[in-house]
Each structure stands twice: as structure tokens, then as C-alpha cells.
């Protein structure tokens, strides 16, 4: 049973029709290929139409789609010979963040990301990709390990946010995120950040500093989830879709604001409809990033990383943006 989003209804109807026709063609042994062709054409047109008019809220739903490629899909595809690592060396291993090293085009890379599960069981085990302080501490520890291997780091962001739990507070969620924010500016190897699904606030940013920041086309990145925003201001989540619009959280928004370096186009109808194409796009982009970074020495890289973040969303940059838009 496929998962359809509410606005994908015409798609689900067409796909059902196609399926029925295909079955009919087999069971009655008749050639229906021309009508099938027509329907498939119609389906592709319909998807194109829907996906060209997405609201921000619909984009949120795609970003959270349960069938979207997850961290482990990327890792298996990008570095099939991977070795993964556990633990923050202080307290525990946080499954919400997963990290592995492996060979990418002949050289090692370290991939670290939020580990949303592929089903309910995995999601419970991985706390739906919402990390505790231990997850952030594991992440920075492994970025340092990457320095030792002299291998680039790919950070894959996909989280609702850092986990709002009792133990999380007791163990210093604030400190863990703050520490990473500062220390990621000092990691000497190249860092590529890709927001693959949900970029949820400080929990996303806690593994979100790098030399280049990319978003998948239907990923989102926000200071607060639209639901929480509505909840704080109105004590209920009924205005979430409104706030999705107002908060400006789509890849297009962030690109316009100059806060990200690029948008990775998703296959027709979103990454959840075609994993292979999405994985391949990400792979190519990593290769491209590594080629860009090769000629840079460490100092230049770190200076540029710092400069990039100090400049983006600065008073001057933002004021210019504001004045040119109004």
C-alpha cells in the first residue's frame, strides 16, 4: 500500500486505474498498451501539474514523507563498504544520529546524519531522528575522526528538531548544540551539508555548519516547525499551514535569501517516487563538491567557512535584501 499525500489524490486515482488496466490486460490477455500509454502520459502530466503549484505546507508534507530516502539509503548507495561508529564516549550511543566512513570514488568520506527510521519499529529505536545531547557529541567526535583520516565530511540533515526530553535537558542539550556550532568552524576537512528532509531548528543546525549548504528541492529548513509556531502563538496547531507560508521555509525561499548554496532537483513527483534518481543526484553533487574543495588549503577553507556564516543573515546583507524586496 503506497502512501499518498492528501494533494496527491488525482495521482493515486490514476495509478489505481493503470494498475487495474494492467491486471486486466494480463488476465484477459488483451493488448491495452495504447490506453495504458495514454494513462501514463496523463499521470506524468498530472504529477507535473501538482508539483509545479505546491504550497509551503504541501512541501512540508513531502519533506516528511515516510517513503523519502533516509540516511541509511544514502549511506548504502554512496559508501557501500561502510563502517559505522557508536557512542559519544561519555554516556551512550544515540541512534538518532548515525555515522559511517566508507569509500567514495576511491577515497574515504565520513557521512553523519539524522537517522530517521524506515518503519515504526526503526523510528522508535532511532527516536524519529530527534537527537539527544549524546547524538550531537557523537557527531562532533566523528568529525574529528574524519580529520584524522583526512577525509571530507557529508552532513545529512533530516530532523524535526533536537529531542525535547527530560534526560536531554539534564545532560545539556543546549551545551551540546552550542558546542557543535562553535567547533564545526574548526573542523579542518571539507564539510558538505545537505538538508534532505526536515531542517528542524537548532537540532538541524547542530550538524549544519559547513563549506557548502545544499537542500533537496522539497526539503524544508526552519527556526521552528509550523505546528509549534501555531501552538505557541495560538495554543493549537490549526494554523500550521498558514505559518508554513509565513516562515518561508522552502528551498526556494532559502536560496532567495542567500542562506544556501544550491537546490538539488528532485525526481518528478518527489524523491519518494524515485529513490535511485535522487541518490544519483546526491552522489554527483558530492563528487562536484570534492572537486571544488581539492585545491583549497586548510586555512583558506576555514576562513571562507567562517566568512560565509558571518556574512549570511548579517545586518547589512539582510537589510539589503529587505530594501530590495520592498
Amino acid at each position: 500500500m503506497k502512501n499518498y499525500l492528501p494533494f496527491e489524490k488525482p495521482v493515486s486515482e490514476l495509478e489505481k486505474k493503470i494498475e487495474e488496466l494492467e491486471q486486466e490486460s494480463v488476465s484477459k490477455q488483451i493488448d491495452l498498451s495504447s490506453s495504458l500509454e495514454g494513462l501514463k502520459q496523463e499521470l506524468s502530466e498530472e504529477i507535473k501539474l501538482i508539483y509545479s503549484h505546491l504550497t509551503s505546507w504541501e512541501t512540508v508534507l513531502i519533506a516528511r514523507h515516510p517513503e523519502r530516502p533516509k540516511l541509511i539509503d544514502y549511506i548504502r548507495y554512496l559508501i557501500p563498504d561502510y563502517v559505522y561508529f557508536c557512542g559519544d564516549r561519555h554516556y551512550m550511543d544515540d541512534n538518532a544520529i548515525f555515522s559511517a566512513i566508507g569509500t567514495f570514488q576511491g577515497k574515504p568520506i565520513m557521512v553523519i546524519g539524522h537517522n530517521k527510521g524506515k518503519d515504526t519499529k526503526e523510528n522508535i529505536l532511532n527516536n524519529f531522528g530527534m537527537a539527544n545531547p549524546e547524538g550531537y557529541r557523537k557527531a562532533i567526535r566523528l568529525m574529528r575522526l574524519a580529520e584524522k583520516f583526512n577525509c571530507p565530511v557529508v552532513l545529512m540533515v533530516d530532523t524535526q528538531g533536537a529531542y525535547p526530553g527530560i534526560a536531554a535537558e539534564e545532560h545539556g542539550q543546549s551545551e551540546a548544540i552550542a558546542y557543535n556550532l562553535r567547533e564545526m568552524f574548526r573542523i579542518q576537512v571539507p564539510i558538505l551539508v545537505i538538508v534532505t528532509g526536515e531542517g528542524g531548528s537548532g537540532g538541524a543546525l547542530g550538524i549544519g555548519i559547513g563549506d557548502k549548504i545544499l537542500m533537496l528541492e522539497y526539503a524544508i529548513y526552519s527556526v521552528i516547525s509550523p505546528e509549534s509556531c501555531s501552538n505557541i502563538l495560538y495554543r493549537d496547531t490549526s494554523r500550521a499551514s498558514q505559518f508554513a507560508e509565513k516562515l518561508h521555509i522552502t528551498s526556494k525561499d532559502l536560496m532567495q535569501f542567500g542562506l544556501i548554496d544550491g537546490i538539488l532537483p528532485e525526481p518528478l513527483g518527489g524523491a519518494h517516487r524515485d529513490h535511485k534518481t535522487m541518490l544519483e543526484t546526491v552522489k554527483k553533487e558530492i563528487q562536484y563538491f570534492l572537486d571544488e574543495q581539492t585545491p583549497l588549503n586548510k586555512k583558506t577553507r576555514l576562513d571562507r567557512r567562517m566568512e560565509k556564516f558571518l556574512k549570511m543573515a548579517s545586518y547589512e546583507t539582510s537589510l539589503n535584501l529587505y530594501q530590495s524586496s520592498s
Binding site: 556550532l181 567547533e183 543546525l205 529548513y221 505557541i232 509565513k246 516562515l247 542562506l259 549570511m312
Partner: peptide, 19 residues
């Protein structure tokens, strides 16, 4: 939150400057 993603990025900027 009224400044959306611009305010989130201040977490990175202030941490960078303090570092």
C-alpha cells in the same frame, strides 16, 4: 520566530564570532 530562518542563523553567527 518572527524573523524565521534569519534568526536561526544568528545561532551560527554568534557561535562563530565567539569561537
Amino acid at each position: 520566530m518572527q524573523e524565521g530562518i534569519f534568526s536561526l542563523m544568528q545561532m551560527a553567527r554568534t557561535s562563530a564570532a565567539i569561537g
